[in-house]
Simulated scan of single mutants.
Amino acid sequence: MSGTVLISRDGAILTVTISRPERRNAIDRATSEAIAAAMDAFDADDTLSVAILTGAGDHFCAGMDLKAFLNGERIELKGRGLAGMIETPPKKPVIAAIEGYALAGGFEIALACDLIVASETAQFGLPEAKRGLIAGSGGLVRLPERMPRQIAMECALNGRMIPAMEAERWGLVNRLTPTGGAVEGARALAIEIAANAPLSLVATKEIVSAGHRWPEAELWPRQNAILETVITSEDAREGAAAFAEKRAPIWRGR
Protein backbone atom coordinates (compact mmCIF):
# COMPACT_ATOMS: atom_id res chain seq x y z
CA MET A 1 0.00 0.00 0.00
CA SER A 2 1.36 3.44 -0.96
CA GLY A 3 1.88 6.22 1.58
CA THR A 4 -0.28 8.36 -0.69
CA VAL A 5 -3.39 6.37 0.28
CA LEU A 6 -4.54 5.95 3.88
CA ILE A 7 -6.81 3.13 5.02
CA SER A 8 -8.95 2.91 8.14
CA ARG A 9 -11.92 0.80 9.14
CA ASP A 10 -14.68 0.97 11.70
CA GLY A 11 -16.88 -2.09 11.87
CA ALA A 12 -18.24 -2.85 8.42
CA ILE A 13 -17.13 0.53 6.98
CA LEU A 14 -13.80 1.07 5.20
CA THR A 15 -12.45 4.59 4.62
CA VAL A 16 -9.91 5.13 1.83
CA THR A 17 -8.24 8.55 1.80
CA ILE A 18 -6.18 9.87 -1.11
CA SER A 19 -3.37 11.65 0.72
CA ARG A 20 -1.45 13.96 -1.59
CA PRO A 21 -2.82 17.29 -0.35
CA GLU A 22 0.20 19.20 -1.68
CA ARG A 23 -0.91 18.09 -5.18
CA ARG A 24 -4.64 18.49 -4.50
CA ASN A 25 -4.69 14.68 -4.32
CA ALA A 26 -3.83 14.30 -8.00
CA ILE A 27 -3.39 10.68 -9.04
CA ASP A 28 0.02 9.27 -9.98
CA ARG A 29 0.85 5.64 -10.75
CA ALA A 30 1.54 4.64 -7.14
CA THR A 31 -1.74 6.18 -6.02
CA SER A 32 -3.69 4.37 -8.73
CA GLU A 33 -2.15 1.10 -7.63
CA ALA A 34 -2.84 1.79 -3.96
CA ILE A 35 -6.49 2.66 -4.52
CA ALA A 36 -6.92 -0.46 -6.64
CA ALA A 37 -5.36 -2.61 -3.91
CA ALA A 38 -7.59 -1.03 -1.26
CA MET A 39 -10.75 -1.67 -3.28
CA ASP A 40 -9.70 -5.26 -4.03
CA ALA A 41 -9.17 -5.86 -0.32
CA PHE A 42 -12.54 -4.25 0.41
CA ASP A 43 -14.36 -6.57 -1.98
CA ALA A 44 -12.50 -9.63 -0.64
CA ASP A 45 -13.26 -8.94 3.04
CA ASP A 46 -16.62 -10.45 4.03
CA THR A 47 -16.72 -8.31 7.17
CA LEU A 48 -16.79 -5.06 5.17
CA SER A 49 -20.02 -3.78 3.57
CA VAL A 50 -19.47 -0.14 2.53
CA ALA A 51 -16.45 2.00 1.59
CA ILE A 52 -15.96 5.75 1.77
CA LEU A 53 -13.50 7.32 -0.69
CA THR A 54 -12.27 10.81 0.17
CA GLY A 55 -9.29 13.15 -0.12
CA ALA A 56 -6.97 14.59 2.51
CA GLY A 57 -6.90 18.32 3.12
CA ASP A 58 -9.13 20.82 1.35
CA HIS A 59 -9.88 18.92 -1.86
CA PHE A 60 -11.13 15.55 -3.07
CA CYS A 61 -9.01 15.09 -6.20
CA ALA A 62 -7.77 17.27 -9.05
CA GLY A 63 -7.52 14.32 -11.43
CA MET A 64 -4.43 12.88 -13.11
CA ASP A 65 -1.07 14.18 -11.93
CA LEU A 66 0.06 15.90 -15.11
CA LYS A 67 3.65 16.28 -13.91
CA ALA A 68 3.85 12.52 -13.39
CA PHE A 69 2.27 12.00 -16.80
CA LEU A 70 4.79 14.31 -18.49
CA ASN A 71 7.57 12.39 -16.73
CA GLY A 72 6.43 9.26 -18.52
CA GLU A 73 4.34 7.56 -15.83
CA ARG A 74 1.47 5.37 -17.01
CA ILE A 75 -1.17 6.58 -14.54
CA GLU A 76 -4.04 4.36 -15.62
CA LEU A 77 -3.92 0.67 -14.82
CA LYS A 78 -4.41 -1.67 -17.77
CA GLY A 79 -7.99 -2.93 -17.86
CA ARG A 80 -8.90 -0.90 -14.78
CA GLY A 81 -8.39 2.74 -15.70
CA LEU A 82 -7.59 5.74 -13.51
CA ALA A 83 -7.26 4.95 -9.80
CA GLY A 84 -7.75 1.30 -10.68
CA MET A 85 -11.53 1.63 -10.33
CA ILE A 86 -12.85 3.66 -13.26
CA GLU A 87 -13.39 0.59 -15.42
CA THR A 88 -13.77 -1.95 -12.60
CA PRO A 89 -15.55 -0.43 -9.59
CA PRO A 90 -15.93 -2.63 -6.51
CA LYS A 91 -18.92 -4.96 -6.28
CA LYS A 92 -19.84 -3.42 -2.93
CA PRO A 93 -21.21 0.13 -2.44
CA VAL A 94 -18.75 3.04 -2.38
CA ILE A 95 -19.57 6.56 -1.20
CA ALA A 96 -17.49 9.53 -2.39
CA ALA A 97 -17.03 12.20 0.31
CA ILE A 98 -16.19 15.45 -1.48
CA GLU A 99 -14.62 18.61 -0.11
CA GLY A 100 -13.29 21.32 -2.41
CA TYR A 101 -12.49 20.33 -5.98
CA ALA A 102 -13.46 17.12 -7.75
CA LEU A 103 -12.12 17.97 -11.19
CA ALA A 104 -11.37 16.09 -14.41
CA GLY A 105 -10.29 12.58 -13.45
CA GLY A 106 -11.15 13.39 -9.84
CA PHE A 107 -14.76 14.00 -10.85
CA GLU A 108 -14.67 10.81 -12.91
CA ILE A 109 -13.47 8.86 -9.87
CA ALA A 110 -16.37 10.29 -7.88
CA LEU A 111 -18.75 9.24 -10.66
CA ALA A 112 -17.35 5.69 -10.46
CA CYS A 113 -18.62 5.63 -6.86
CA ASP A 114 -22.26 4.80 -6.17
CA LEU A 115 -23.22 7.75 -3.98
CA ILE A 116 -21.82 11.25 -3.41
CA VAL A 117 -21.86 13.26 -0.20
CA ALA A 118 -20.43 16.76 -0.68
CA SER A 119 -19.84 19.85 1.38
CA GLU A 120 -21.76 22.95 0.34
CA THR A 121 -18.57 24.54 -1.00
CA ALA A 122 -17.48 21.56 -3.12
CA GLN A 123 -17.19 22.01 -6.88
CA PHE A 124 -17.24 19.53 -9.73
CA GLY A 125 -16.05 19.86 -13.30
CA LEU A 126 -14.88 18.21 -16.51
CA PRO A 127 -12.57 20.87 -17.99
CA GLU A 128 -10.89 18.55 -20.52
CA ALA A 129 -12.33 20.31 -23.59
CA LYS A 130 -10.52 23.47 -22.46
CA ARG A 131 -7.24 21.54 -22.74
CA GLY A 132 -7.90 19.92 -26.11
CA LEU A 133 -8.88 16.62 -24.48
CA ILE A 134 -12.04 14.71 -23.57
CA ALA A 135 -13.16 13.22 -20.26
CA GLY A 136 -12.14 9.72 -21.30
CA SER A 137 -12.24 8.05 -17.88
CA GLY A 138 -15.96 7.49 -17.77
CA GLY A 139 -17.18 11.03 -17.21
CA LEU A 140 -18.93 11.39 -20.57
CA VAL A 141 -20.71 8.07 -20.02
CA ARG A 142 -21.61 8.32 -16.33
CA LEU A 143 -22.49 12.01 -15.99
CA PRO A 144 -25.62 11.77 -18.23
CA GLU A 145 -26.75 8.86 -16.04
CA ARG A 146 -26.56 11.03 -12.92
CA MET A 147 -28.14 14.29 -14.13
CA PRO A 148 -30.31 15.44 -17.08
CA ARG A 149 -28.57 14.69 -20.37
CA GLN A 150 -28.75 18.25 -21.70
CA ILE A 151 -27.20 19.66 -18.50
CA ALA A 152 -24.47 17.00 -18.59
CA MET A 153 -23.84 17.90 -22.23
CA GLU A 154 -23.52 21.60 -21.39
CA CYS A 155 -21.09 20.95 -18.53
CA ALA A 156 -18.93 18.65 -20.65
CA LEU A 157 -18.87 21.01 -23.66
CA ASN A 158 -18.11 24.25 -21.84
CA GLY A 159 -16.07 22.73 -19.01
CA ARG A 160 -17.65 24.93 -16.39
CA MET A 161 -17.56 24.27 -12.66
CA ILE A 162 -20.68 22.80 -11.06
CA PRO A 163 -21.23 24.10 -7.51
CA ALA A 164 -22.35 21.47 -5.00
CA MET A 165 -25.76 23.04 -4.46
CA GLU A 166 -26.48 22.93 -8.19
CA ALA A 167 -25.20 19.35 -8.33
CA GLU A 168 -27.63 18.39 -5.58
CA ARG A 169 -30.48 20.08 -7.43
CA TRP A 170 -29.78 17.96 -10.50
CA GLY A 171 -29.57 14.78 -8.41
CA LEU A 172 -25.82 14.30 -8.79
CA VAL A 173 -25.18 14.70 -5.05
CA ASN A 174 -27.08 12.59 -2.52
CA ARG A 175 -26.46 14.73 0.55
CA LEU A 176 -24.95 18.15 1.28
CA THR A 177 -23.04 18.97 4.45
CA PRO A 178 -21.44 22.09 5.92
CA THR A 179 -17.85 22.70 4.82
CA GLY A 180 -15.59 20.14 6.46
CA GLY A 181 -18.45 17.73 7.10
CA ALA A 182 -18.41 15.53 3.99
CA VAL A 183 -16.71 12.52 5.60
CA GLU A 184 -18.97 12.71 8.64
CA GLY A 185 -22.01 12.90 6.35
CA ALA A 186 -20.74 9.99 4.27
CA ARG A 187 -20.19 7.98 7.42
CA ALA A 188 -23.78 8.59 8.56
CA LEU A 189 -25.01 7.33 5.19
CA ALA A 190 -22.61 4.36 5.33
CA ILE A 191 -23.93 3.35 8.74
CA GLU A 192 -27.47 3.25 7.34
CA ILE A 193 -26.35 1.07 4.43
CA ALA A 194 -24.08 -1.22 6.47
CA ALA A 195 -27.02 -2.17 8.71
CA ASN A 196 -28.46 -4.15 5.78
CA ALA A 197 -27.65 -7.62 4.46
CA PRO A 198 -24.28 -7.78 2.64
CA LEU A 199 -25.55 -10.08 -0.13
CA SER A 200 -28.53 -7.81 -0.69
CA LEU A 201 -26.26 -4.78 -1.02
CA VAL A 202 -24.05 -6.41 -3.67
CA ALA A 203 -27.04 -7.74 -5.63
CA THR A 204 -28.87 -4.42 -5.46
CA LYS A 205 -25.83 -2.49 -6.67
CA GLU A 206 -25.36 -4.88 -9.59
CA ILE A 207 -28.95 -4.53 -10.78
CA VAL A 208 -29.17 -0.75 -10.33
CA SER A 209 -25.77 -0.19 -11.97
CA ALA A 210 -26.12 -2.55 -14.92
CA GLY A 211 -29.79 -3.45 -15.35
CA HIS A 212 -30.61 -0.54 -17.64
CA ARG A 213 -27.93 -1.76 -20.07
CA TRP A 214 -29.16 -5.35 -20.27
CA PRO A 215 -30.98 -6.33 -23.49
CA GLU A 216 -34.73 -6.43 -22.89
CA ALA A 217 -34.90 -10.17 -23.55
CA GLU A 218 -32.27 -10.78 -20.85
CA LEU A 219 -33.59 -8.37 -18.20
CA TRP A 220 -35.82 -10.70 -16.21
CA PRO A 221 -33.66 -13.83 -16.54
CA ARG A 222 -30.60 -11.91 -15.31
CA GLN A 223 -32.44 -10.25 -12.45
CA ASN A 224 -34.11 -13.51 -11.43
CA ALA A 225 -30.76 -15.33 -11.37
CA ILE A 226 -29.42 -12.71 -8.97
CA LEU A 227 -32.63 -12.83 -6.94
CA GLU A 228 -32.32 -16.61 -6.61
CA THR A 229 -28.89 -16.34 -4.98
CA VAL A 230 -30.27 -13.83 -2.47
CA ILE A 231 -33.64 -15.39 -1.66
CA THR A 232 -32.09 -18.80 -1.00
CA SER A 233 -29.39 -17.39 1.29
CA GLU A 234 -29.09 -17.80 5.04
CA ASP A 235 -29.40 -14.03 5.37
CA ALA A 236 -32.82 -14.05 3.67
CA ARG A 237 -34.08 -16.49 6.28
CA GLU A 238 -32.40 -14.50 9.04
CA GLY A 239 -34.04 -11.29 7.84
CA ALA A 240 -37.49 -12.88 7.90
CA ALA A 241 -36.87 -14.44 11.33
CA ALA A 242 -35.59 -11.17 12.79
CA PHE A 243 -38.66 -9.33 11.49
CA ALA A 244 -41.01 -11.95 12.98
CA GLU A 245 -39.18 -11.94 16.29
CA LYS A 246 -38.92 -8.12 16.39
CA ARG A 247 -35.13 -8.07 16.79
CA ALA A 248 -32.12 -6.82 14.86
CA PRO A 249 -30.84 -9.32 12.26
CA ILE A 250 -27.41 -10.92 12.55
CA TRP A 251 -26.04 -11.08 9.02
CA ARG A 252 -23.60 -13.79 7.97
CA GLY A 253 -23.03 -12.75 4.35
CA ARG A 254 -24.17 -16.07 2.97
Rank of each mutant, 00 (worst) to 15 (best):
A129M: 04
L199E: 13
P93C: 08
G84W: 01
G181C: 09
G106S: 08
L6V: 10
E228V: 04
E234M: 12
T4R: 08
P93R: 14
P215E: 11
A112Y: 02
A104M: 01
G181M: 01
I162R: 00
P21T: 08
G180K: 08
S233L: 08
D235T: 12
F60M: 06
A36S: 12
I191Y: 06
V94L: 10
V16W: 08
A188V: 03
E166A: 14
L143Q: 00
E228D: 15
A195L: 07
I250N: 13
D28N: 15
H212E: 05
E145C: 03
A97H: 10
E192W: 02
L53I: 08
I226P: 11
S2F: 04
A195F: 07
G125W: 00
A156S: 10
A190D: 11
G180C: 07
T47C: 07
S49Y: 12
M1S: 05
F107M: 15
N174M: 11
G181A: 07
R247G: 11
G159P: 02
R146W: 02
R222M: 06
P93S: 05
L82Q: 03
F69I: 06
L14S: 07
E22G: 10
P148M: 04
A30V: 05
I191T: 05
E234W: 13
A135C: 05
S2W: 07
E245N: 13
F107C: 11
D40K: 11
E206Y: 07
K67R: 11
A112W: 00
A129E: 02
I35P: 04
D46C: 10
S49E: 12
A242M: 14
E99K: 01
L6Y: 02
H59Q: 03
E206L: 11
T15Q: 14
A129S: 09
R247Y: 13
L133I: 00
L201F: 12
L53N: 08
F60I: 01
A194Y: 15
A34C: 06
G211F: 05
G239T: 07
G211R: 07
I207G: 10
P163W: 02
M147Q: 06
W170I: 04
D235N: 14
C155D: 00
A197V: 05
I250P: 04
K67G: 11
D28Y: 12
A26Y: 01
V50F: 07
G181W: 03
R169P: 06
G239E: 14
A156G: 03
A62C: 09
V5Q: 07
L199C: 15
A51P: 12
K205G: 13
T54S: 10
T54L: 04
E33P: 01
I7Y: 06
N25Q: 10
K67P: 02
E128K: 01
A152Q: 00
E206P: 03
V50S: 15
D114I: 09
T17M: 13
L199G: 13
V141T: 08
R252N: 09
A44M: 09
R237W: 15
A51I: 05
A197L: 13
E128Q: 13
A102G: 03
R254N: 10
E73N: 09
T232Q: 15
E166F: 11
T179A: 14
L66H: 06
T31C: 15
L103N: 02
A182V: 06
G136R: 04
G3N: 06
R9D: 10
L219P: 03
G84Y: 04
N158V: 08
A195W: 09
G11A: 10
R20C: 00
K92D: 09
F60P: 07
G3V: 00
